[in-house]
Design a protein around this nucleic acid. Sequence first.
DNA 1: AACGGGTATTGGAACGGTCCAACGCAGCGT
DNA 2: ACGCTGCGTTGGACCGTTCCAATACCCGTT
Lengths: 336, 336
Amino acid sequence: MAAPRPTIKDVAALAGVSKSLVSLAMRDSGRVSPESLTAIRAAADELGYRPNAAARSLADRRSNTIGVLVQDLHNPISAEIIDGVQRQVRASGYHTMLVTGSEVAELEQSEIEKLLEFQVEGLVIIGHRMPAGARAAIKGYCPTVIISRAESDIAGLDSISNDDNAGGRMAVDHLYSLGHRAIAHITGGDNKVALMRKSGYESAMTGYGLATQLASYEGAFTDEGGYRGTCAALDSKMGHSAIFVANDLAAVGALAAAADRGLKVPDELSIIGYDGMALGGLRSISLTTIAQPLATMGLDAAALLFLRIKDPTRPPVHIGLEPRLVIRNSTGVYHR
Amino acid sequence: MAAPRPTIKDVAALAGVSKSLVSLAMRDSGRVSPESLTAIRAAADELGYRPNAAARSLADRRSNTIGVLVQDLHNPISAEIIDGVQRQVRASGYHTMLVTGSEVAELEQSEIEKLLEFQVEGLVIIGHRMPAGARAAIKGYCPTVIISRAESDIAGLDSISNDDNAGGRMAVDHLYSLGHRAIAHITGGDNKVALMRKSGYESAMTGYGLATQLASYEGAFTDEGGYRGTCAALDSKMGHSAIFVANDLAAVGALAAAADRGLKVPDELSIIGYDGMALGGLRSISLTTIAQPLATMGLDAAALLFLRIKDPTRPPVHIGLEPRLVIRNSTGVYHR
DNA sequence: AACGGGTATTGGAACGGTCCAACGCAGCGT
DNA sequence: ACGCTGCGTTGGACCGTTCCAATACCCGTT
C-alpha cells in the first residue's frame, strides 16, 4: 500500500477550511475560532496527520535541531554528558540529532557533514580528540561547542572542559598526602587531554621536590592501555607505591594488573583514576578518581551553545570546571 | 552577520549554468559535460555550498534516514548494539537519527513522534521495555524493528532478540555442571526480558529436580538492584553457593555484595550474569556471563528493517539468536 | 540542404509547510 | 446609512531541492 502520509491540505479539505488555517491551528497561535479548532483537531487525528519536519524546516529556514557528535560512545562517560546536553536542549525547545564518530577521520567528517546538511542550528562535540570537521564547522559559521577539550586556542570555537591540569595535580596531591612518594603515571596517549593530565602530574611532582621520581608509562584511554602501562610500571624497579592513571577505564585495567601481580589494592598499591564514570562507583570497583562534573558539562555546553546561537558574534569562551576528588577504596595510606 | 547559506541557485549563477544542471552535477548522475562539472565543483566550494537536506527530503519524498530509539543509554550494552545498527544502516546508504528514551513514557512517546515528523523511513528500538510509541509506529505504518524483546506477539512489529529463556537455562546448566545445587536467582524486574530469563532459570532448576531449591530475589537491571538482591539472597538461610543474576550490570553489584560479606568469588560463591557487556570482560571484573551477540543483533535488526522497508507487506518475523556462555573467573566448581 | 538522433542543458511544476497582505463580516460609534 | 475597527479566514508567494518535458546544439546521414 502506498499510503501517502496525509498533508496539511488533506486535513484542510476534511475540516472544510483553508490550509493556512490548519497551519495556524497546529501551532495554536491564537486567532482561531473554537469551532474551527475542534473541527481541525478532529480531522487531523482522524487522518493521523503529522506535520512534515522537512517542509517546516524549509519554510521556517530553521531546523530547530542541535547536532551532537559523540566520538566514543563506548566510554561510559559519554552517556552522562549526553544526558546533560539532551536535558538542556530539550528544555530550550530544540531536538537533538546524535551521531557517533569513529577512529576514521573521514567517517567522522562525513557525519558532521550530514549534520550540517540537516541545517542543524548548532553543534556539540563530545570527545577528547580534535574532531575532523571542526574547522569546517567554523568556516560554515555553525555555532559549535566542544566538550572535554579546551579549544579556546582555536579561534571561533567555544569549549568546555574540566581543568585537566589541575586535576592531574589534585591526583598527585591526594596520593602525596597519603604518604606516597614513588608515584607513577600511566598516560592516555598523545591527545591534548591526556597530555594536560600528564603535565599536571609532572608539575605537582616537581612542586613536591619529587622530580627524580617522575615516571610516565605509555597507556591509552582504555582498559587494555591501563593494564599494559601498569604492568610496565610494576616491572620497572622503581618501587612505585601509587599510580595515577589517565582515565577511569584505564584505571580499571590497572586494578586488574595489580590483581594479576597479587598486589593488594590499596594496601600494597594505590590507584587513582580520572573522569568519575558511574561505573567506577560500582562497589566491586570502588575506584578513587578525579571526577569531572559530567552532567553539568553537558548542560553548560548546551547553554553556551544557545548563547552563541543568539549572538554569533560574541567572542569564543572556554569554560573550565573544577574537577573534584572522589575518594573510594583504591587508594590508601602508604606503609612499606 | 546574516550569512545566508548559499543555495543551489547561487552556485548555478556563479558557474553560469542552470540550477537543474547543478542539481545533476551534485549527484554526479552522468550526462554532465566535464567542463560544466568542474565549473560547478569550483563554484560550489568557493561558496562553501552544502545541499539542504530538508529541501531534498521534501522533493524526494524520502528522508534517507532511520530513527533509532535507545531506551537506556547508560547500559553499556546499548553502545555495542548501536554500533551494529549504525554500521549496517550506513552500509545501506542511510543515516541514523539517534534519540534516547527515558523512564517517562510521555517523553519517550514524544521522541518517537519527533522521529516520525522527520519522516524517518524506519525505526529501530533498542530496549527491554515496551516502547510507549510502538503502537503509534505500527498504526502509522512506519517500519519498525525492536531489539532485545520478542514482539512477535504484537502484530506488525519485527523483532530480534536472543533467546532469554534458553539463556537462563544455560546459566543454570553451567552452574549445575560445576556441582552447584543451591542456585539462587536475582531478578531484573517485571519486564518481559527479565521474566523470560527467570522462567529459563525455573525450568532448568525443575528439570534438574531442584524445584525445592528455587529461590528468586527481587532485583533490577542495575548495579544497585543486583547488590540488594544478592544481599537478600545471602541473608536467607538457604546456603546458596551460586547466583544467577539477571544481567551483567546487576551481577557487578552482586560481586560487590559478596565482597562486602567477605565471600571469595568464585571459591565461596559463584556468580554468573547475562548480556556479555564488554566491561564484564575487564580483568578486574572478569564476570562469567551468558553473552548476547550484541553487534550482530544490531546488524541483523537493521538488515531486517530494510527488508521490511522494501516490502511492507511481509509478515512480521522474530529472529531469535542463540546466546553463548562466556566463562571467566566469577564461577568455579562447588566445594563446601 | 534537410533530417534524425543523441547529448547537454534548461525552465517550471511539484513537494508540504509558513508567512503575509488582503478580504469578508460583525459590531460599533456617529 | 456610513465608515471604522478587529477578528477569523483565505489565496498565493516562497523556502531549496528534484524531476520531467522541452529545447538547443552538434554531428553524421541521405
